[in-house]
């Protein structure tokens, strides 16, 4: 029997497929979301398809004071914890409204960093575990179209990198996921290029593989590594004039 997998932000399309990928391998699943009642059908789905035990847990990434209690209240310290929490926000709104900007920054960086820190400490004490953070290529270089989101993800990516460094000799592994475009609720209605856009199920498979192989940073579609290498290599005087 494999160990439990905790999925934070479990209502997300990506999280749903990540949970399925691990459930298919026999892992018990802990689904956590702000309104866990919404996950009743997802619990039934995982149990019916894969015959693994599933539990639901209330979790708000912004309620950082409650995070230690959340970890203590889980049925067990999970073997693997995946954080899919995120908020794209609307760039114009985040520019105009400091509250909205703070929400984007806190949801993509502060909240996830807070909960993963609690989990990391417990896993370090145990001497084993894997932490998976879903960050974004948007954090690799700030762009006019979503730089508040991008900046928050950049913070989260740096956080994950530091955490990986800290825990490398402690038996705990950290995986950073940079999914590229994914067809989910977050990107609904956007006109995304087919070749660059993954289905949530591809993310599920990639995360499972990344965890099993102990990878550090994963791009879901390999083409994104090329795209981002180019975008990052553009000299600033040129980059600042682009509209990517």
């Amino acid at each position: 029997m494999s160990g439990a997998v905790l999925v934070l932000g479990a209502t997300s399309d990506m999280a749903r497929e990540i949970a399925r990928a691990f459930a298919a391998k026999g892992h018990p699943i802990r689904l956590a979301a702000r309104v866990p009642e919404r996950l009743a059908d997802d619990k039934a789905d995982l149990e019916t398809r894969f015959g693994v035990p599933v539990t639901l847990h209330a979790f708000d990434a912004l309620d950082t004071a409650a995070h230690a209690g959340f970890v203590a209240g889980l049925p067990e310290l999970p073997e693997i914890a995946v954080c899919a929490v995120g908020l794209m926000g609307d760039q114009a709104e985040t520019a105009a409204d400091p509250e909205a900007a703070a929400r984007v920054m806190r949801t993509n960086f502060e909240g996830p960093a807070s909960i993963l820190e609690r989990l990391a400490d417990a896993m370090e004490a145990r001497g084993s575990g894997t932490i998976v953070g879903i960050s974004s290529v948007a954090g690799l270089r700030g762009r006019a179209s979503n730089y508040v989101y991008g900046a928050a993800k950049a913070g989260f990516t740096a956080y994950l990198s530091g955490l990986r460094n800290r825990l490398a000799k402690r038996g705990v592994h950290v995986v950073t996921v940079l999914p590229g475009f994914v067809r989910t609720r977050m990107t609904e209605g956007l006109d995304l290029p087919d070749r660059l856009t993954a289905e949530p199920s591809e993310v599920g498979a990639a995360v499972l593989r990344g965890v099993e192989k102990g990878r550090n940073i994963i791009y879901v579609r390999p083409v994104w590594q090329v795209v981002m290498t180019i975008i990052r290599a553009l000299p600033e005087p040129i980059f600042k004039k682009t509209s990517l």
């Binding site: 399309d13 059908d41 997802d42 039934a44 789905d45 019916t48 398809r49």
Partner: peptide
């Protein structure tokens, strides 16, 4: 396709 949950057997 977004409604693809199995609910019981």
């Amino acid at each position: 396709r977004g409604m693809d949950r199995m609910l019981g057997f």
